[in-house]
Design a binder for these strands. Structure first.
Length: 550
RNA sequence: GCCCCCGUAGCUCAGUGGAUAGAGCAGUCGCCUUCUAAGCGAUUGGUCGCAGGUUCGAGUCCUGCCGGGGGUACCA
C-alpha cells in the first residue's frame, strides 16, 4: 500500500463516517498522509481528524475515533490508533508495506513521475548570461537549479521549454566590442570596458578568423568584433553549459526582437492598453498602477529603448508561443524586476499570479583563504563555470549547488569545493547507489533471482523505515515541482541513502559464508533493487550520475 | 525612506500549521575473519534573533522591533 493508496483509504473512511452521521461537515479536499517521525507512532500519521473537528463541532479525538473504527478493517492496515490531540497513527501490515518494493521495481525509471502538472506548458528561463563574458559561478547556481527544476517539472507531467535569453543589444555589447577592438590594436581598454583575460583570447580569435579586420575603418572593425565576438561568447557559453549537462531548448536573442520590430509592436500594444505616457521627452510605463513605487522608462529621451521595452516584447513573445506559465529564475540583484514583469503581464491583460513565476535566488559568495572573492565579469577576477567544473567535477558541482534552497545566501569555500572528499554529500548518495549495484551483482552471482517475493518477510524496523522512505519519493518530486524547489530532491536522497546504509548494515542481502539462500534473501534483493531505482531516478532529476561502481 | 531575502547546534544548512526541532561537518568513544569502512553505532551540543498576536497546536502564518545581505537609474 502506497501513501497515495492510504490517503484514498482514509478519504473513503471519512466519507463513510459522513454518510453514517458519525459527525457532520464536508468531505475534505485532500487528506495529508505523513510518515511518522517517531516509530512508536506507527508507519504513517494524519491530522485529518483535527482539521475536521472544528466544522463538525466535535472533539478531535472523537472524530479520530470514528474514522479509526472505519479504517481499521481495511485490508493491509494492521493498526489504527488515536493519539495526542487527535492524530491517527496508522501501522500497515508488514506485507502491505513491503509490497511497495515490487511496485517500484515494476515501475522502474518511471517511479516517482506523476501527472500533477499534465497539460501545462511552462517556459523556464534561467542563466541568461550576458554574451560579454564567460558563464561564472553566479550563473552556475541557476544552471544547476534551473536544469534540475526543468527535470522535476517534466517528471510531474509538464511540457517544459528551457530558455536562455541573450542580451545582445545595447551599451554593454557595444562596450564589449570596443574592448575587443582596443585589445586587438594593443591599445588601453576604456575604464568602463571589459578587462578580463578572456577579452584578449576572444580578440585574438576574432583576428585569427578575420585577419583583415584591423585594416578596416574603425566602425566596420567594431561591427566585426561585435558580431564575431558575440557568436564566440554564445558558443562558449553553450559549450560550458553542455559540459555541465545543462541544455537549453531555445537561445533567444534580444537583438532579433529589435530587428524584427517586435519591440515596437509590444510598445504599441502597451500603449493601446493605456499604460504608456510621454513625459520629458521619454516614454514611460505606468508601473505604479500595479504596485511599483515609481513609473519606469521604456524609451529614453535620446530615443534608445530600455531593457524593460525588450522584456515586455519578450514576455509577449512567450505568451504568443503558447506558454501557460513563464518561470524566471533571477538573482537577488534583479528582484526589482518582479514588479516590472508583473506589470508587463497585467498591462497585457494577463493575471500575473496565473502566468508568472519569478524565483529570486540569493547570490553566491565565494570565500578563499578567509576573504571574499568578488564575482565581477568586468574586473576579471572571476571563477567561471569551467573553473568550477575543473575543480570539483560536474557531479559534485551540480549537487553541491542544487542541494540548497534558492533563498539561502550561499557561501562556498574554495578549499571545500576543491576538496573532493567523502564529506561531500554527493558521494554519500552516489556511494549508496553504487552499493545497491554491487549488492545486486553479488546476489546475481549467487543465483539469487527476483522470482520469489514475500513482502511479509521484510519485518525489520530498518526495513519499515527504508520502505516508508521509498514510498515518499513521488510526493517529494511533486512537492519539489509545485514549490519550484529541486533541493528537496537532494535532501530526500540524502535521507534515503542513510536509511539504505543502515538497512544494509543490519540486514544481509546474501547469506554469510556458506549459508543457505532463503526467501528472505530473495525478497531483500527486491528491496535492494527498489532502492537502486529510486536513487537512480532521484539523481537523474538532479542531473548527477549514478555510478555502478565506486 | 521604500522593496526583497536571511537570522535554527561551534560551523554550513534542512524543516509545504502538528507530537520530544533535524542532518552533515567539527568534538568525544567504539565497530572491518562475513555482501564496498566513500559505511555503521554511541555520545556531546538549542532562549528556532526579540516582543506581541492568530488557534486545539507556531521554527512555520500576521504585526512591530533588532541584526546581516541585496535592491531601489532616462544603467545593463
Amino acid at each position: 500500500m502506497t501513501p497515495a493508496d492510504l490517503s484514498g483509504a482514509v478519504r473513503a473512511a471519512v466519507a463513510q463516517c459522513l454518510a453514517a452521521g458519525d459527525f457532520g461537515g464536508a468531505p475534505p479536499a485532500d487528506v495529508l498522509i505523513e510518515r511518522a517521525k517517531n516509530p512508536e507512532h506507527g508507519d504513517y500519521t494524519t491530522n485529518i481528524a483535527m482539521r475536521l473537528a472544528k466544522p463538525a463541532g466535535r472533539a478531535a479525538r472523537d472524530v479520530a475515533a470514528a474514522i479509526a473504527a472505519r479504517l481499521a478493517p481495511v485490508e493491509g492496515i494492521a493498526r489504527v490508533e488515536v493519539a495526542g490531540p487527535g492524530f491517527l497513527n496508522i501501522t500497515l501490515a508488514t506485507a502491505s508495506l513491503g509490497e511497495l518494493a515490487r511496485a517500484i521495481v515494476s515501475a522502474g525509471a518511471s517511479y516517482g513521475h506523476g501527472d500533477a502538472l499534465a497539460g501545462q506548458r511552462i517556459n523556464l528561463e534561467f542563466v541568461s548570461a550576458n554574451p560579454t563574458g564567460p558563464v561564472h559561478l553566479g550563473h552556475t547556481r541557476w544552471a544547476a537549479l534551473g536544469d534540475s527544476l526543468r527535470r522535476v517539472l517534466a517528471a510531474t507531467g509538464a511540457e517544459v521549454v528551457a530558455e536562455h535569453y541573450i542580451n545582445d543589444f545595447g551599451a554593454q555589447i557595444d562596450k564589449f566590442a570596443a574592448s575587443l577592438d582596443a585589445v586587438a590594436r594593443g591599445r588601453e581598454v576604456a575604464e568602463d570596458g571589459y578587462h578580463g583575460e578572456y577579452v584578449v583570447d576572444v580578440a585574438k580569435q576574432v583576428v585569427d578568423a578575420h585577419p583583415d579586420v584591423l585594416g578596416l575603418p574603425e566602425d566596420q572593425a567594431v561591427a566585426v568584433f561585435t558580431s564575431v565576438g558575440y557568436q564566440l561568447m554564445v558558443d562558449a557559453a553553450r559549450t560550458s553549459l553542455q559540459r555541465f549537462r545543462v541544455e537549453f531548448d531555445v537561445w533567444f536573442s534580444e537583438r532579433s526582437m529589435h530587428a524584427s520590430g517586435e519591440v515596437e509592436a509590444a510598445l504599441e500594444l502597451l500603449r493601446e492598453q493605456g499604460h504608456v505616457y510621454d513625459t520629458d521627452g521619454a516614454v514611460w510605463l505606468r508601473t505604479t498602477d500595479f504596485g511599483d513605487d515609481r513609473d519606469r522608462v521604456l524609451i529614453r529621451s535620446n530615443g534608445e529603448k530600455t531593457y524593460l521595452a525588450a522584456d515586455a516584447a519578450y514576455y509577449l513573445d512567450k505568451r504568443r508561443r503558447g506558454f501557460d506559465r513563464c518561470i524566471y529564475l533571477l538573482g537577488a540583484d534583479h528582484h526589482g524586476y518582479i514588479g516590472r514583469l508583473r506589470t508587463i503581464a497585467a498591462c497585457a491583460g494577463d493575471d500575473p499570479d496565473q502566468t508568472l513565476d519569478v524565483l529570486i535566488g540569493q547570490l553566491v559568495r565565494l570565500v578563499r583563504d578567509g576573504h571574499e572573492v568578488r564575482l565581477s565579469k568586468r574586473a576579471g577576477t572571476i571563477v567561471t563555470l569551467d573553473d568550477f567544473v575543473d575543480l570539483v567535477g560536474v557531479d559534485a558541482g551540480r549537487y553541491s549547488l542544487a542541494r540548497w534552497s534558492a533563498d539561502t545566501p550561499l557561501t562556498l569555500d574554495v578549499a571545500e569545493i576543491t576538496r573532493s572528499s567523502n564529506d561531500n554529500p554527493v558521494y554519500y548518495v552516489q556511494y549508496a547507489h553504487a552499493r545497491t549495484c554491487n549488492a545486486k551483482r553479488n546476489a546475481a552471482e549467487l543465483g539469487i533471482r527476483l522470482d520469489v517475493f514475500r513482502p511479509e518477510l521484510l519485518d525489520s524496523p530498518h526495513e519499515s523505515v527504508l520502505l516508508a522512505a521509498l514510498g515518499d519519493f513521488p510526493s517529494v518530486v511533486a512537492t519539489a515541482a509545485e514549490l519550484r524547489a529541486p533541493h528537496r530532491v537532494a535532501r530526500y536522497l540524502e535521507e534515503l541513502a542513510g536509511s539504505y546504509h543502515r538497512w544494509y548494515d543490519a540486514c544481509r542481502i546474501i547469506p554469510s559464508g556458506d549459508g543457505e539462500i532463503t526467501d528472505v534473501n530473495r525478497t531483500r534483493a527486491w528491496l535492494n533493487d527498489a532502492t537502486r531505482i529510486v536513487l537512480a531516478n532521484g539523481l537523474d532529476l538532479l542531473g548527477v550520475s549514478a555510478p555502478e561502481r565506486m
